[in-house]
Amino acid sequence: MLEARLQTGALLKKVLEAIKELITDANFDCSDNGIALQAMDNSHVALVALLLRHDGFEPYRCDRSLALGVNLVSLSKVLRCAGNDDIITLKADDTADVLSLTFENTDNDRISEYELKLMDIDSEHLGIPDTTYEAVVQMSSAEFARICKDLQVLSDSVQIDVTKEGVKFGAKGELGSGAVTLKQNGNVDKEEEATLIELQQNVSLNFSLKYLVNFTKATPLASRVSLSMSSEVPLLVEYKMEAGYIRYYLAPKIGE
């Protein structure tokens, strides 16, 4: 059985907001390592990989591996019934036909209990090869969200060029073109806002902005984001949390 108590329930609410528009149904794979999820969007262009490590919960107990098949829209609706400061406890027994959720307020004088019906989900688990990326950009997650949203005004795709000087996001469309360049600036006073680049080789890649904008729904989870790129392989966008991560992979657009 699974029992996982999350002191900051808001984290789970934010995680659901970050994935529910990309994927509809997914298995939460529970093991002694923690709770993991891997799922592709319907068009097989993007993939979400989530890990909530066991040490982010207190207590965390999972004596046998369980796959909890969840409709994410339903789960996010139930999670909206939890207060932002509530402690959330997830429970499931080995039959895994319902997920029990308990929300306790901080004064511990209001306890709400919900049960969500689970489903059998046949999910394709993808093997993601270990990749040494040619370029890794670490930057402010809020800045990345702003750039994606701004450039979406011009086009449905963005060209990302990384050199040792900086990273340039460019878009061209019917109404014109636009570009935002962030220079590498490791010395800025505010560490959170620094743009840092690790580069083996310059890269220039094109991606759908619709998906990138969708990924930025994870912005409330982390102040930093990393973009890992190599020529003609999927982009990895990672938001690191205190005890886990949310990773998005996006297949590139390639010239015909």
Partner: peptide, 14 residues
């Protein structure tokens, strides 16, 4: 014109 690739051409079903 750019063509959107599928993830399945990069990642194998495990």
């Amino acid at each position: 014109p750019m063509m959107q690739k599928s993830l399945l051409s990069f990642f194998k079903t495990a």
